[in-house]
Structures are given as C-alpha cells and as structure tokens.
Design a protein around this nucleic acid. Structure first.
Lengths: 126, 126
DNA sequence: AGAAGTGTACTAAGGGATTAATACACATAA
DNA sequence: TTATGTGTATTAATCCCTTAGTACACTTCT
C-alpha cells in the first residue's frame, strides 16, 4: 500500500479512494483481510484514528465488514462490489465529460491523446 | 453566472474553476470586464472576500488583470490563454486515465458511454 | 495463564484553511 | 463637491480535520 497524500483533501478520504480503487481493480479480493488500523497507520505514517475513520465509513457502505476484535475484511457481497464498480465508472465518465465540455475539440481528436497517456501509464507501472 | 457549490471544496477554488472553464469555452472573452467583487459576491450569495480571494489568485496566474480601482478584466495575452487551455485539457485527460485505469474495460468499450453522456449534456443545455 | 494484538469509544487540543466583518484610499459620475 | 462604487488590506471568527492520549473488552497465540 503506497500512497502519496495531497495536502488539500482529508487523509481519510484519500485512503478510502485508494482502497476503493484497489477493490475495483481486483488488487483487493472479496474476503481478503485488511491490515489492522494500527498497522496501516504505522505504514502510512498517519494516526490510527484517521485509519479508523476511513475503515468505519467503508463499513457503513458495506465495502468492509468486521467481526469482533478481528481485522476488517473486504466485502464478499457481489452486489456491493458490482455497485462500487458501477459508481466508479460513472464518476469517471461524468467528470471527464464535464471537463472536456468547454473544450473546442471533438472526442475523436481526444482519442489519440488518451491512448498515449494510457500507454505511458503501462510503461511506468512495469 | 450560475454555480452550485459543493460543501467539500473551498468556494474560492470552485469560483476559479468555473471562471477558467468559461475562459476555455470562450464564454469569457479576452479584455472582457468582470463583475466587481461585490457584484459577483452578491450574485453568488457569498462573501466579497471570497471573490477577492479567487480574483487575486487568478491575477497571480495572469488570467486576470486589474487597473487601479477598476473592475478586473480577462487577460488579453494569447499565450496565457493558450497555456490555460493546454493545462485544462491535460488535467482532464490525466484524471480520466487515472480513473479508468483500474477498470477492466478497454477504451473502445467506454466510447459509447462517453458519447451518450455527451449527447445527454447537449440536450440539457438547450 | 499470560502477553500481545484486535476493534471500538471517548475526550481534548491544535492547526490550518476558509469565511466574514470592517476600514481605507481612490476613481468615477451625478 | 458629494455620493457611490472600485480594489485592497487587516483583523477576527469559525469550521473541520487531524492528532493525541487513554481506556476497555475480546481474540489469538505463545
């Protein structure tokens, strides 16, 4: 778990976003055990209460579940995961469309730029 | 000037984003006179200082310029405007690519969804 | 049994950013 | 001149997030 936090947004929200992203990609699998609050806090150099804030909000959204005094785990409910992926996709598209709306370029003009950026990513990852 | 503010991000940043967007689209033309701090504040039901904060930051970025005790105006420097458009576009693409990265769909699969969302926009606007 | 590690809960304090209130100098127009 | 409207500057107040320190019950493992 590697994250670089920006100073603008609340850390607990950035943690949530990062975890959601990993759930969408499949890096985090259903039923998988999460690091404990204290572990993750230590790893990210943040306060355990901040992790607690992130985890508990994700519990409310059913993305995580916790059995008493056991580390939280990723939801095993397919419907919840499906809904998460759906929302993630919708948000990506909504924001993109809203952003390019004022630009005087057609989607066709944009395609190659997106393609290039996508291939740049893959290079960096490997 | 119609904006709905979210509660999370600072208002002055949302104002800046909105004004930049209008500059990118051409709704705001070079040399055009902006509403005064007080006028805009009144119109948006926010504090004049918040508008001042937005305007002065845009001045630092050369997007606006102000002659003493006169309403600010849109930059007339083509290079500045061009740079703005470039950054706006890059940001849109970066964010989009980052968002769809974890999704298990190809860009080709996404295209029709984007197209549909784009046409929905046009309908709502007219 | 004992120790270490869980999640959970509560309170307190601070820190930084944002918003708000006010005042001032100057330009413009009536 | 007078009044109104500019931008600008300074100060105060407010809000939310973060950090910090404890405490407690329970599970797991040694």
């Amino acid at each position: 778990m590697n994250v670089t936090f920006n100073k603008r947004d609340p850390i607990y929200l950035q943690v949530i976003t990062h975890l959601k992203k990993q759930m969408v990609s499949g890096d985090l699998q259903p039923g998988e055990e999460m690091p404990s609050r204290r572990q993750l806090a230590n790893q990210l150099k943040i306060n355990p209460n901040t992790v607690q804030r992130a985890y508990s909000e994700m519990e409310e959204q059913r993305l995580l579940f916790t059995e008493t005094n056991r580390p939280s785990r990723i939801t095993e409910d397919p419907a919840v995961l499906k809904q998460l992926k759906k929302e993630w996709l919708n948000q990506a598209i909504d924001r993109f469309v809203s952003a390019i709306d004022p630009i005087d370029l057609s989607l066709e003009d944009l395609m190659p730029m997106i393609q290039e950026e996508l291939s740049n990513r893959k290079k960096d990852v490997k």
